[in-house]
């Protein structure tokens, strides 16, 4: 019976759980989530690929038209690539809603600025 008071106290308190898809938890600064690669800064040294413990990064193509591909399904969000990159081309955002029904392979993401980078070079 030692807990009765605590129980009744919680009756008037707001529940600690949240209704997830309709409410999201308060974001915490510095969370390591989605990996974003700025291909304009990248020099293609491959350090991040060498250091990634989960083999989640891949270089696609060669030379000037190459791009970095990141597989969210493999990534363990350790942030080693961010630390390894000599040009600070990689950053991690707090975006964590990365679940998808696609396969690990097809969910791979190209860097977003790839197109912008590629256009002038082709002319």
């Amino acid at each position: 019976m030692a807990m009765e008071r605590e129980l009744l106290r919680h009756l008037v308190k707001k529940p600690a759980t949240i209704i997830y898809p309709f409410e999201s938890p308060e974001p915490i600064e510095g969370t390591r989530a989605k990996v974003e690669i700025d291909i304009l800064k990248c020099i293609g040294c491959g350090t991040c690929i060498h250091d990634c413990p989960a083999y989640a990064l891949e270089m696609v193509g060669k030379g000037l038209t190459c791009d970095m591909k990141w597989y969210p399904g493999r990534c363990v969000f350790c942030g080693q690539c961010v630390e390894s990159c000599p040009r600070n081309a990689i950053k991690q955002t707090a975006e964590h809603d990365l679940a998808t029904t696609e396969s690990v392979e097809s969910a791979g993401m190209m860097s977003e600025r790839f197109v912008e980078f590629n256009r002038p070079k082709k002319e």
Binding site: L7, L8, H10, L11, K13, P15, A16, T17, I19
Partner: peptide, 8 residues
């Protein structure tokens, strides 16, 4: 019971 346990 859920409310007593601070759940929903």
């Amino acid at each position: 019971l859920a409310r007593l346990q601070n759940r929903r």
